[in-house]
Nucleic acid binder design. Structure first.
Lengths: 149, 149
DNA sequence: TAACAATTGAGATTGAATCTCAATATCAAA
DNA sequence: TTTGATATTGAGATTCAATCTCAATTGTTA
């Protein structure tokens, strides 16, 4: 597994602050997510761990994910195949997603102007934004050129 | 039930085009959605119909909703309480949503500048957008002022 | 090291959404 | 109209992600 410094400390501090325990299982789950380092869901994480001979029960995986969300290390992102999907956010800037409806490819993007306008619109409505999710569905470049042939 | 003109024709045409049948049940479901005229999910629609002594089986409701989506009369909007939620879109302009995490209030908004920037970003990536969903979570004006007291 | 409280895992449970299939309804063509 | 091919319905079974249960176990603090 990859070496982990600061994020692990954040997780441990979160647990300590909440009076929760830092267990072997939680460490394995944490390391697994760091290793995957891209979009994942609870089941694919279980499979990933099983493939590395680290069998952690589904229940523990499902229980640990919300803790990692609350500690700010991962975020619930798109819903894929009708499952909650997550991504590592520690040390990464917020971004939004384009999803190809043909091949499923995910393109991440960030546009400061859009973010700014969103805040502006919220202010106008007296709404205090906490987080947002923008998902654009359509066809990616590769699928478009395939379809044109 | 409210009288319905054009949208009903659109639905009938869609069904005809696909070789599907225009049934009593589908009409009742259609009318129910027109009457609700706001966000709904499959179950709440069933309950609404039951309350009007129009008992339609869950299965039929679940089967009809995708037909209405495909015919362009309703759209899948936010996911609420872990259920797919829909809204009538016929004759309405596209809009996005703010959702209050405290009281659940939904604020619809539209900003042409944001839409334009989205298209621009897509073009830059060679991505052809079909539809998008922007949801902003936060605190609404009412909840903010309550919290300040 | 002891004692308390949180955690684990296997399996049961929930609940939305989908599927099954025999009985029924729709609709185009005659 | 009537007919016949075919889509649809409803009740209940099924699926599957997510959550819950509870006895055995482990982490933490003093």
């Amino acid at each position: 597994m990859k070496k982990t410094g600061l994020p692990l400390e954040i997780f441990r501090n979160y647990l300590r602050k909440k009076g929760l325990k830092f267990t072997r299982e939680r460490l394995i789950i944490f390391n697994g997510i760091i290793s995957i380092s891209k979009h994942f869901d609870a089941d694919s994480l279980c499979e990933f761990l099983k493939g590395r001979n680290k069998n952690i029960s589904r229940a523990s995986v499902y229980r640990t994910i919300p803790l990692l969300v609350k500690s700010g290390l991962i975020t619930e992102s798109l819903r894929c195949n009708n499952k909650f999907s997550y991504e590592l956010t520690f040390g990464r800037r917020h971004h939004d997603h384009m999803v190809c409806v043909k091949c499923g490819r995910i393109i991440e993007f960030y546009d400061a102007r859009i973010e700014k306008l969103q805040n502006e619109v919220c202010k106008k409505r007296g709404f205090e934004p906490l987080r947002h999710k923008l998902g654009i569905k359509g066809y990616c470049r590769a699928c478009l050129s395939k379809m044109r042939k």
